[in-house]
């Protein structure tokens, strides 16, 4: 039995019918073809699937699509303004904050959400805020630097 949901995703209102058990991440990836959000563990432990729901970072593998009804969702594809990257995207590029790139969309969504609450976090605060996002490539060193760069206003 389908459920009708209405979600604003990356600035566009979409209406779709989804199954009750459909996860938000599968709705984004399969119904809307927004494959930038990755699935790493399906148990909310790796953070690869982090998106914003009503401006807050959530793990889209442990949200049902029906829970997104009436909300505003932002994914990595929605972070650019026109051709201009979000300062956090730019900072990840400048600081080599990614290698394989698989955790990166989640990292960017999580860290940019952090800066909305704390515009000038210490290294310790950045590391605490990243507890829920696993990166196996970078040892977090350059991710921390990227967040610091973005906090300081980009380049």
């Amino acid at each position: 039995m389908g459920h009708k949901i209405r979600v604003e995703v990356n600035g566009r209102v979409v209406e779709r019918e989804v199954e009750a058990h459909t996860l938000l991440v599968h709705f984004l990836r399969e119904d809307l073809a927004l494959t930038g959000t990755n699935v790493g563990c399906e148990t909310s432990l790796c953070g690869s699937c982090t998106v914003w729901m009503d401006g807050e970072a959530v793990k889209s593998c442990t949200q049902l699509a029906v829970q997104a009804d009436g909300t505003t969702v932002t994914t990595i594809e929605g972070m650019r303004t026109g051709d201009e990257m979000h300062p956090m995207q730019q900072a990840f590029w400048e600081e080599h904050g990614l290698q394989c790139g698989y955790c990166t969309p989640g990292m960017i969504m999580a860290t940019s959400a952090l800066l909305k609450h704390n515009s000038n976090p210490s290294e310790g605060e950045i590391r605490e805020a990243l507890k829920g996002n696993v990166c196996r490539c970078t040892g977090y060193h350059n991710i921390v630097k990227a967040v610091q760069r973005a906090a300081q206003g980009g380049s």
């Binding site: 990836r29 930038g36 990595i76 594809e77 990257m85 995207q89 990840f92 590029w93 990614l98 790139g101």
Partner: peptide
């Protein structure tokens, strides 16, 4: 990086 940080990198499951 530009593709990977904007969600345009395409992995097998994509």
């Amino acid at each position: 990086d530009p593709a990977l940080i904007t969600g345009k990198g395409r992995y097998t499951d994509d």
